[in-house]
Structures are given as structure tokens and as C-alpha cells.
């Protein structure tokens, strides 16, 4: 499967960013993966240790946000939820819709350890404030 290729591409990006930030260790990697991206989150998790071994992100946790599929109708203008193989407008049923979300394959955020501390981009709601530098 191509999830290993995706993991290898991810490692390349993570290493570049970690170097730029002078990080000692990457602790958490946040991804957004939509059902229409063609990447399976569970396979990504399984492939991850193979790609991350002996890198700065070896012990990093992968946190994957599975984005919902949403479409916007070009005919009636409604925005509605949809399924991967049924992307029709939920209001009027027309097929002429535009995908609003659901095909994401994004690295959204990294949490890094630097000089014995933790760097992250969150407001602190999910991480202990004491770990801020």
C-alpha cells in the first residue's frame, strides 16, 4: 500500500521542520486525513513505525483527525454532509456539487521538545501548562 510512501514523505517534512525549530525530539504529529484522500488512517498508523525508526520522530505519537465529507451544491447553494461514493447535494439531490472538505491529506501541527521543554501550538487546553517553555 502507498501509506508507507506517505509516511516517508511525512518524515522528510517533519525532519525539516524539527531542524528549523532546533528540536531535540518530536513528541506529537497532528494530521488531517479525509476519507477521499485515498489514505487509510489505520494503515498510516501501522506503517508509521517503519518509516519513523531511527529518526527524530521515532517516538512521536500520530494524532489523526478524520475530516468529514461535506459538499456545496452548485444548483441550490446548500452545504451538506455526504458519503465517499455519494457526493450528491443532501438538499436537492443534484450531482453538481463542489467538495468543501473530505480530501485533506495534511500535516497540521507538530509538538516538539527542545532543550528539555515542550513546544506546541495549542492554547494549552489539551496539554499541561507546566510543560510550556
Amino acid at each position: 500500500m502507498h501509506e508507507l510512501s506517505v509516511c516517508q514523505a511525512l518524515i522528510g517534512q517533519v525532519e525539516t521542520i524539527a531542524r528549523r525549530e532546533s528540536a531535540a525530539r518530536v513528541t506529537v504529529i497532528h494530521l488531517a486525513i479525509g476519507p477521499l484522500s485515498g489514505v487509510e488512517p489505520e494503515l498510516l498508523r501501522r506503517a508509521w513505525p517503519l518509516a519513523a525508526g531511527a529518526t527524530i520522530a521515532e517516538e512521536a505519537e500520530l494524532l489523526i483527525e478524520a475530516a468529514d465529507i461535506r459538499v456545496e451544491c452548485s444548483v441550490c447553494g446548500a452545504e451538506s454532509a455526504a458519503k465517499a461514493n455519494r457526493l450528491l447535494c443532501g438538499e436537492c439531490g443534484d450531482w453538481r456539487t463542489r467538495l468543501v472538505s473530505g480530501d485533506e491529506m495534511l500535516l497540521t501541527r507538530l509538538e516538539l521538545e527542545r532543550n528539555g521543554g515542550v513546544q506546541h501550538g495549542d492554547t494549552g487546553a489539551t496539554t499541561e501548562d507546566s510543560r510550556h517553555v
Partner: peptide, 14 residues
Amino acid sequence: SGAESVDVLRGLLS
């Protein structure tokens, strides 16, 4: 407070 943020928003296959 998140001045050291490492937000990325980059395609995995960029």
C-alpha cells in the same frame, strides 16, 4: 501564549 507554535498545514505529499 502559543508564540512557539509549529502549525504547519502542509500537504503530506507536497
